[in-house]
Amino acid sequence: MRQIVFKLRDGALRSGAAEVPVDVSPLTPDKLFGEGEDEIKSTKVWWGNRQENVERIFEVSVSGDASGAEEVKVVFEGELRKVKRIGYEMSAGEIVAEGSVGMHCGARMRGGRITVNGSADCWAGCEMHGGTLIIEGDAGDNLCACYRGETTGMTGGTVVVKGNAGECIAQYMAGGEITVRGNADMLAGLDMKGGKIVIEGDAVMPGANMSGGEIIVKGKVIDMMPSFKYEETVTIDGEEYKKYRGDFAIGEKKAKGTLLIRS
């Protein structure tokens, strides 16, 4: 087992009055498992419009050995809100972020596990295909959605948000499962085609344009879509839910989404 710790140096991202974000997409178990300590320290990362050695920005410590990405644990420490693309496209191994992280955490990930011990900014788990993403705090907008113009979002994997989630989570979701322990803001599961979302708190206008998949809301629905059809009351785990079908705004043939709201 190999552990690589990147601790953000104090003030390392300051440029004048600004805090310029750093893109750490090269710092995944996939890319680092075979690298020596020196090579890891001199890995190039984009900081603003110039590339820097990672060591200039992070204190790096490496321990243990690994024969594959699945045996690597990467830990990020320090103030991570301006650290973007943690675990971008990762396929194996583990990443732990000790604090709230910047945008695109776990975006396009295919496997492995990311734990954020804090909140995650927008586009966490975007276009995720597999693996596990655990966010102990809140998630920003576009969680598990897709990048501009795409029409397929998350296709697989498991995501748990222990706090609240922002707007338009899981847009164009096609597979996988998302649990939000708190509330979800506007338009959760917009354009959803498949997969499952469980919102334990409240949701605003969930399920618009749904053509497949399932959304379960255990709290209140604020602004129920006017284009869903009530079908029946069902019982899940001893609780009664109203079951709706939609979205009829896309036409009856395509309206194959299921929205379950606790009565």
Binding site: L187, A208, P226, F248, A249, G251, E252
Partner: peptide
Amino acid sequence: FLVFSALRAILRGH
């Protein structure tokens, strides 16, 4: 947003 969706459903015969 809600009004647009309602109009869409109506225009599609629902």
